[in-house]
Amino acid sequence: MLHLVLFLIFGVVCVAGAVNLLVQSHPINSALSLVVVMGSLAGEYLLLGAEFVAAIQVIVYAGAIMVLFVFVIMLLNAGAEERTRGSRIAVLFGIPGLLVGSILLAWVLVARSGSQAVPVGALPGPPREIAMLLFHDFLLPFEVTSVLVLIAIMGAVVLAARPEAIEHTKKEG
C-alpha cells in the first residue's frame, strides 16, 4: 500500500514538473522543472526495483546533464521567451486528442493487461544483470551507439562553424 502511495506521489510530481516545464517562460525555470521531472522519475525507477537505473538517472540526468543545461542557459544569458498565441489547430485537435489518447491508454493498462502484469523486481535491476544485458545481449546496439555519438559531434562542428571560419582555414591551409 505504501508502495502504491509513493508511486502515485512521484508520478504526480513528475507530471506536474513536466507541465510546469512547458508553461514557464523563463528558460531557467524550465530547466529547474526538468530537474524535478528527472528526480521523480528516479524515484519511480527505484520503486520498480531498478536501483541501478535510478542511481544513474540521478547522477547522469538530474546531475551532469542538468548542470550542463543550466550552464548553457546562463552562458547564452537567455531571457524570458516571447509567447505566441499558438496554433489554433493544435489547441482544437491537440487537447481533445491528448485527452482521448491518455484515457484510452489508461483504460487499456488498467482493464486489459491485469493478467499479464509483471511483478516488481522481475525485470533485471542489479548492476550485474544490467551489465549482462548491456555488454552481452545488447552488445551490438551498445557499440553502434558510438557511431551515433560521433555523428552528433560532427553535426555540432558542422553547424557551429561559421561560413567565414571555413573560408579562413581554407586560405591558411
Partner: peptide, 24 residues
C-alpha cells in the same frame, strides 16, 4: 530487434538532418 532498429534509425536520421544544412 527494435532497440537496434531505433539506434540505426537515429544514425541515419541525424546524419541526414545535418547534411540538409550543408549549404552554409
Amino acid at each position: 530487434e527494435l532497440v537496434l532498429i531505433f539506434i540505426a534509425l537515429e544514425i541515419s536520421s541525424i546524419s541526414t538532418y545535418i547534411l540538409a544544412g550543408f549549404r552554409r
